[in-house]
Design a binder for these strands. Structure first.
Lengths: 108, 108
DNA sequence: GGCGTATGGTTTGTATTGCAAACCTATTTG
DNA sequence: CAAATAGGTTTGCAATACAAACCATACGCC
């Protein structure tokens, strides 16, 4: 079948994808945080193989979106940054996957 | 469980995501083309709700990546641009989904 | 025929942003 | 005390998604 002109009336266009969640590094961060209750900066850095700078900006972006919380404290005398997923983060993640599958099955 | 320092040795880091496929508009284009054998420019434009300019650049990018072929001809006296997915495009798409699921199940 | 509009795109300009290098502060080690 | 290490943040840059502007041809119609 060849798709020709004006066949469909463009009802809903592309399923809307949340760009904040869609970025692979951030998907990975959310995956981890959805599994571990909370994780500190160094853990995410080594686990995901992200540079510090990169991780830092991703975390603040996720925090600004309300998808995670970032807590700063001290481990001994050293700074310690810990991240945890929020409820909004969890729902955003599941909704993102729903949209992805909708995208995959566009014409199915 | 709180994820602490140096727990894992960062074996594989983030599953590598093909950015060319990962872009939502292009995922949508590939979804359609995977279903219809071929589709012409106007069809994709209205079906996906993309602007002409946007669609045009996405198509050339997919073509340069070898994921689709773009054929220019005429319908009557009017220009006609038609796109079709390639084998590489199909496998890229399935591999992309495998990587996505791997990303989702990072700690599962 | 002439002229405005529609069709089918491509090219250009711009704002966003992913990424690491550079930087910063404090701490530990030699 | 000097140098290295830890734990991050800020800066600079290159890539890029997107639409506006543009371009060429075709059609409607007077």
């Amino acid at each position: 079948m060849t798709a020709r002109r004006a066949d469909p009336p463009a009802p809903q266009a592309i399923p809307v994808i949340d760009r904040t969640v869609h970025e692979p590094a951030r998907m990975a961060i959310l995956s981890v945080l959805d599994a571990v209750e909370d994780a500190d900066f160094t853990f995410l850095e080594t686990m995901l193989g992200l540079s510090k700078g990169n991780l830092s900006t991703h975390l603040t972006r996720l925090e600004e979106a309300g998808l995670i919380t970032v807590t700063k404290s001290f481990r001994g005398r050293r700074p310690l940054t810990t991240a945890a997923i929020t409820d909004r983060g969890r729902t955003a993640r599941t909704e993102h996957w729903e949209q992805l599958e909708r995208l995959r099955d566009l014409m199915a």
